[in-house]
Design a protein around this nucleic acid. Structure first.
Lengths: 132, 132
DNA sequence: TATGCACCTTGTAGTAACTACAAGGTCAAG
DNA sequence: CTTGACCTTGTAGTTACTACAAGGTGCATA
């Protein structure tokens, strides 16, 4: 399987796949006679894993950890659990942040009925520190 | 006012302030005899505006737009409104994304009662594309 | 006087996770 | 025999900072 096929199969750009290889996230592929990368089903599985974990918001470093864990079938499952919980916590925090942000922007929007910027409450309120 | 004071007053690192100046987000400061930057109240107001807008999730490019708008007091307020609405939309989208992400991770967590990674449903489910 | 310290200056490079591009090699089809 | 779709490498750009090196300034203290 050439890089373009793998790219299509996983919805990843070829450049990203090469990048993953450079970064050691993916094992290097075999090469054909003409020096093209030649991928196996194992590569497909690995890349799928990586992309899936990235979609779920894990960082590259966390993906590496997950891959290492996945390779040690006899290790306890708790480590994986722990990473997932941590990620869950981070996401909850982000949601909270964005929610208060949304509230603030909503206020901002409702605060201004002016026609010209000189009288605009939005601009005015941006110009002051939060608590002022 | 020296850069350190301005930094403290706005909760911004001095390096970030210099960066804003380089990028044209903030006007250059006057210089004292010893070549230190010397800031005015206008600079304080401008930096406050920038930081506040950044806190609200506007990109640097958007902050530039907002600053330009704020300088044109006679322009209609609708442009500001539009930017705020756009930002609000993006934030809603992010919240939605993160929420489904959280749901998925929650599922993942509940799916695995195994002791060893070899049997772990989390690892297993990461290894497959989303809809499989 | 020396010296230590906190502050300031510039310029450069690093961060995360790609993405884009340039310059060139390979191969099948028309 | 040339066009076009692939592939290769290497380098630089993206966002919004952050960190660091190497050096200048100004004030208080031993």
């Amino acid at each position: 399987m050439r890089i373009g096929e793998l790219a299509k199969a996983t919805g990843t750009k070829a450049e990203t796949i090469r990048y993953y290889e450079r970064e050691g996230i993916l094992p290097a592929a075999d090469r054909t006679d003409n020096n093209y990368r030649d991928y196996s089903q194992d590569h497909l599985a690995a890349l799928t894993f990586v992309r899936r974990a990235r979609e779920l918001g894990f960082s590259m470093a966390q993906v590496s950890e997950l891959l290492d864990l996945a390779d040690n079938e006899d290790k306890p499952c708790g480590d994986v659990d722990h990473l997932v919980r941590k990620q869950l916590g981070e996401i909850d925090r982000k949601i909270d942040d964005l929610t208060s942000l949304r509230d603030e922007l909503g206020h901002l929007l409702r605060s201004c009925q002016a026609d010209r910027i000189g009288d605009c409450r939005i601009v005015e309120s941006l110009a002051r520190p939060r608590k002022a």
